[in-house]
């Protein structure tokens, strides 16, 4: 009895044998083993299509190139930036800029961001430490002392936005320079990715109801950004050569 041709066995990795071939495969363990091996190879290849590895591109580099090409012409952050009194008017996108609702939305976003900061800070404080008042905490004391120094809502909101930008810079720094590293990190990142997927899904659903809502858009995009950072952190926390197939 002759073995099946090598090319035919390779082909059988993705197609069905004829009746004659089937009879041969039933009697020839070696041909059957080769057929199974090529099927296994096909499955490995298919699985490879769903895998991702370490990122090849960085947003800093890509965004600079996009600006040079004229493909990126405006920052979304402008939509929440106040113009200080006395600044000449500049052309800005119509939506999302004017109206008290936009300011309230921005303030709400900032409160959420602030809440995250406070929450993170609180988590790092020992539970036994007594709660301090603003006067006992130099930072809070500073905030308290400034509470009455604003002369207008616009001035106060401008300060809020400056704080927001500072928060975003600090959060980005912390996410990319996490000083805490232990072997449980991949699990933490996986859990965070799953949670961020839920956030993205929820905000996506909300956007279907209110596609032009700037706050919901910011949530979606912020979640996408956090997801991207976490994915990169997960990749770098895995042993060399490991890749993410799922989480």
């Amino acid at each position: 009895m002759l073995h099946l041709p090598a090319d035919r066995l390779i082909e059988l990795g993705e197609s069905e044998p004829t009746n004659t071939e089937l009879a041969h495969l039933g009697a020839c363990a070696e041909c059957e083993r080769e057929r199974r091996a090529y099927r296994a190879l096909r499955e490995l290849a298919s699985a490879e299509g769903a895998s991702v590895g370490a990122p090849l591109t960085s947003w800093d580099s890509l965004s600079a190139a996009l600006r040079d090409e004229g493909l990126m012409t405006r920052k979304s952050a402008q939509i929440l930036t106040l113009t200080p009194p006395g600044t000449p008017a500049v052309a800005r996108p119509r939506r999302w800029h004017t109206g008290a609702w936009a300011l309230r939305a921005a303030a709400a976003l900032l409160l959420v961001a602030g809440g995250v900061v406070i929450g993170k800070s609180a988590a790092s404080v020992e539970m036994s430490q007594p709660q301090t008042t603003a006067a006992a905490d130099p930072t809070l004391g500073t905030v308290a002392n400034f509470a009455g120094s604003y002369t207008s809502n616009a001035e106060a909101l401008a300060a809020l936005y400056r704080a927001q930008r500072e928060y975003e810079r600090a959060a980005t720094f912390l996410m990319t320079n996490n000083p805490v590293a232990d072997e449980t990190e991949p699990d933490v990142y996986r859990a965070r990715l799953a949670a961020l997927d839920n956030v993205m899904q929820a905000s996506m659903t909300a956007l279907e109801d209110a596609p032009a809502d700037p706050v919901i858009n910011r949530y979606y995009i912020a979640a996408a950004g956090a997801r991207e950072s976490t994915l990169r952190q997960l990749q770098t926390s895995l042993p060399p050569g490991s890749r993410i197939d799922s989480y």
């Binding site: 991702v52 090849l56 591109t57 990126m72 405006r74 920052k75 979304s76 979606y220 996408a224 991207e228």
Partner: peptide, 20 residues
């Protein structure tokens, strides 16, 4: 329209598979 965050969102969502 050239919106940075929208471009970044597309890149962030699809770069793992495109880069792969």
């Amino acid at each position: 329209d050239g919106d940075e965050e929208a471009l970044r969102s597309l890149w962030s969502q699809h770069s793992p598979h495109i880069d792969a």
